[in-house]
Amino acid sequence: MSQTIQAFLGIILQAFPFLITGVLLSSLIGMFVSRRFIERYFPKNLAGGIVFALIGGFCLPVCDCVSIPVFRSLVKKGIPLTSAIVFMCASPVINPVVILSTYYAFGGNVRIVAARALLGIVCAVLTGLSFLIKKPHNPLKHGETESSCTCSCCEAGTDSHTEKPHAGAFNTLVHFLEHARREFFEVGSYLIIGAALSAAFQTLGGKLPLITGNTGKALSLFIMMSFAFLLSLCSSSDAVIGRTFIPRFSLGSVMGFLVFGPMMDIKNMLMLSSGFTKRFTLRLLISSFTVCYLVVLGAMLSGLEALL
Rank of each mutant, 00 (worst) to 15 (best):
C63I: 07
V93P: 02
D64F: 03
F52S: 02
V98K: 05
C59H: 00
I55C: 10
M88K: 10
V97A: 07
L100E: 09
V97G: 02
V62Y: 00
F106A: 04
C89I: 15
C65V: 11
P96G: 04
C65T: 10
L81T: 04
V66Y: 15
L74P: 09
I99E: 11
D64W: 00
L81C: 04
Y103V: 01
A47S: 13
I68A: 11
L81Q: 05
V70Y: 08
F52N: 03
N45W: 15
A90N: 12
A90I: 03
S73D: 10
V66E: 11
L100K: 04
T82N: 03
P96C: 04
F58Q: 02
G49P: 05
R111P: 03
R111Y: 13
L54M: 07
A84P: 11
A53E: 05
P92L: 05
S83N: 07
L100H: 02
I94R: 09
V110D: 08
K44H: 12
L74T: 04
I99D: 01
I99Q: 08
C59E: 00
V66D: 14
R111V: 06
Y103E: 09
C65W: 01
A84E: 09
F106D: 07
A53I: 05
M88Y: 06
V98Y: 00
I55P: 01
I99C: 07
S73H: 13
I68K: 11
T102P: 15
S91M: 11
L100Q: 06
V62H: 09
M88T: 01
V75M: 12
G56N: 11
S91V: 15
V97N: 08
N95Q: 15
R111G: 03
C65I: 10
Y103I: 02
C59M: 14
I79D: 00
N109Y: 00
F71Q: 10
L46R: 07
C65A: 09
N109G: 05
L46T: 00
G49C: 07
V98F: 00
V75D: 12
F58C: 06
G48M: 02
V97T: 14
F106H: 06
P69Y: 14
A105R: 03
S73E: 12
G48S: 02
K44I: 03
V62Q: 14
N95K: 13
C65K: 03
P80A: 01
S73V: 10
V70I: 15
P69F: 09
S73Q: 12
C65R: 04
V98M: 05
N109E: 05
P80M: 01
S67G: 09
A105Q: 05
P92M: 03
